[in-house]
């Protein structure tokens, strides 16, 4: 494994109202090596997007959200950086692609002009050079008529095209860390395939590390080198992609895999739901948050939060993890 580009340790995010507080992200620690695509998966409300925003330094520093722990990008602790420095780093060192590209663009300015403006600022280019670079990177992500896209207003492009334009920008900026928060969730599957392909292409070409936030196990299985599984604000399992799908160790990971429908060429493969539902963040049980839905839970699980342990190359936070003999 190459050197860590991003080191997150003990990241906690909690929401406060008066004397009450709710922990939304709970002691998150992980590292992101340079040049890898790491998937962050989990169901809605588990804290994926909050984590992504925290990494970009986009959470409000005052107000009801409180953030602690450290986020080190190339040795620099982002939580201690001044807002000005963060602004300088965004785009150059780290960039983000959001779920809904329609809201990421200004609706009354042509797409190409918006992209070129960013490039002029970030890379100190003059107008013609920025324009040329924009056209070049639009062509690189697969647009057959880059000039046409340059001149289009955001509403004239489809969702997939807008997302690809965002990727083109990331390609031109070459950030060291790219955070893609559900980049294909609002897209059709055939378009999704194109966008994911370009994301992988971008990673190979620029060597950027990508944190791919998604709820879709299929998407991360197709793209990622490493996967982090989150449940109720905690990372419950971290493993290499191939290992995670072949031998899930956390019962939640195993349950998630069993609940995900897969296409079979013939009779459908059975799916089995996870009983119960995700507890809301205000009513988290003590101990392991998954205990109430877990078939392997014991008394210990409802009393004490499990510490992280290593099984082969994976990290698992569970009192009763599935060992290899329990391969589902």
């Amino acid at each position: 494994m190459s050197a860590a580009l991003l080191e997150v340790s003990e990241l906690c995010i909690s929401a406060h109202r008066g004397p009450r507080s709710v922990r939304l992200v709970d002691h998150l620690s992980f590292t992101l090596p340079a040049g890898e695509i790491v998937g962050l998966v989990g169901e809605s409300g588990c804290g994926k997007s909050l984590t992504a925003l925290a990494l970009m330094g986009l959470l409000p520093r005052s107000g009801s959200l409180r953030c602690s722990g450290s986020i080190r990008l190339g040795g620099l602790d982002l939580t201690r950086c001044a807002m000005r420095d963060l602004r300088h780093m965004r785009g150059r060192d780290m960039a983000m692609i959001f779920q809904e590209p329609a809201t990421a663009f200004d609706p009354v300015i042509r797409v190409g002009v918006q992209l070129a403006t960013v490039l002029r600022r970030l890379r100190s280019l003059r107008r013609p050079a920025a324009r040329a670079l924009t056209l070049e990177s639009l062509a690189q992500v697969g647009f057959l008529e880059p000039e046409d896209v340059y001149q289009a207003f955001p509403h004239q492009l489809s969702g997939g095209m807008r997302q690809l334009a965002m990727i083109a920008l990331a390609l031109a900026c070459r950030p060291r860390l790219l955070i893609a928060d559900e980049p294909t969730t609002s897209l059709d599957v055939t378009t999704q395939a194109v966008v994911l392909d370009q994301l992988k292409h971008l990673q190979r070409q620029t060597g950027s590390a990508i944190l791919l936030v998604s709820h879709d196990l299929g998407v991360v299985a197709q793209c990622c080198d490493e996967i982090l599984v989150m449940y109720c604000g905690r990372i419950v399992e971290q493993a290499r992609c191939v290992d995670l799908f072949a031998r899930p160790h956390h019962p939640y990971t195993a349950g998630l895999l069993a609940a995900t429908p897969r296409i079979a060429h013939g009779e459908p493969l059975p799916v089995s739901p996870i009983p119960g539902q995700v507890p809301t963040s205000g009513e988290l049980p003590p101990g392991c948050h998954f205990a109430a839905r877990c078939g392997r839970a014991s008394d210990l699980c409802s009393r004490q939060a499990p510490a992280e342990q290593r099984i082969h190359a994976s990290r698992v936070a569970c009192h009763h993890p599935l060992r290899d003999s329990h391969t589902p």
Partner: peptide, 27 residues
């Protein structure tokens, strides 16, 4: 067929390299 081929399979050992369907990017 293209639609079926484009669904991402939750199995990293069955990765596809090329997207299945051309023509998304033309208006």
């Amino acid at each position: 067929r293209a639609l079926l081929a484009a669904v991402p399979d939750p199995d990293p050992s069955a990765r596809r390299e090329r997207p299945a369907l051309p023509g998304q990017l033309s208006r």
